[in-house]
Amino acid sequence: MSELLQFLFSGVTIGAVYALVALGFTIIYNASDVVNFAQGEFVMLGGMITWFAHAAGLPLPLAALIAIAATACLGVAMNKLMIEPARGAPVVSLIIITIGASIFIEGAAQLVFDKQIHSFPAFSGDAPIRVGGATILPQSLWVTGGAIAVFVGLWLFFTRTLLGRAVLATSNNRLAAQLVGINTTFVMTLSFALSAAIGALAGVLATPITLTSYGVGIGFALKGFAGAMLGGMGNPKGALVGGFAIGMIEALTAGYLSSQYKDAAAFVVILAVLFFLPQGLFGRTSTDRV
């Protein structure tokens, strides 16, 4: 029993990171119909910049803030320089553009930082907390709390603020949104900034547990993407649930089946879901109009 609890704890922790990445995917997908494969690089940058700034002598909270702000700026730059000019391009082209961006950022990170594995201190110490025979790291609570806080924040933003509703309107129907005077270009900029910031936050929260290096991005991107897809592309609730689900499946597979195949579990589930529910768990079905 305590064993199961232990696996669940680690599943929740890693699932929270995936959920954050999946939420990032969802925001950009809703605003622009682009699946941003560079989403994982935002996570990497969050961790790496924080490490770099912290190592340079800045206090950790300030270093984290700088990392999140810098990554958000990078997200905006990416939108302006790569996504906006490619408006209307076919899906394959958009996939290649964002993967190209991902490779570019990874290459740049190697140069700007280094090729080592890094970490920084956990926010509230490393003393494990005992719960029902299992233990959980305080940092895990930070990560999980972060994911839930971001989700609630997004929910409030999208339902309670005018700007958030504008973003939602744009995702429902870009043309109609433009007609009622919503600046859809700004909505896209905002979405990239928000999404990059959330990715960086995930990196900041997770690095004390998962460690970071220039190459961690693509793994986060694939798992987060799997989570977003599992929940149904474009649905924030689905992204949250999907991200946590992928984390759980991974942890349980590692615990009970094979630690080598823990990464496989996520993709087996994805394939199974797509076979039987081609629109994901919470996705909308669409009918071709002819």
């Binding site: 790569m82 000019p85 490619a86 391009a89 082209s93 958009l94 290649i96 553009i97 993967i99 190209g100 961006a101 991902s102 490779i103 570019f104 950022i105 990874e106 290459g107 740049a108 190697q110 140069l111």
Partner: peptide, 20 residues
């Protein structure tokens, strides 16, 4: 060699944007 990855990524992006 240091720049290989960056150049590769950049080529992918630029070709897709400008030479669809």
């Amino acid at each position: 060699a240091e720049y290989e990855q960056m150049v590769l990524g950049l080529v992918m992006v630029l070709v897709m944007i400008f030479l669809r």
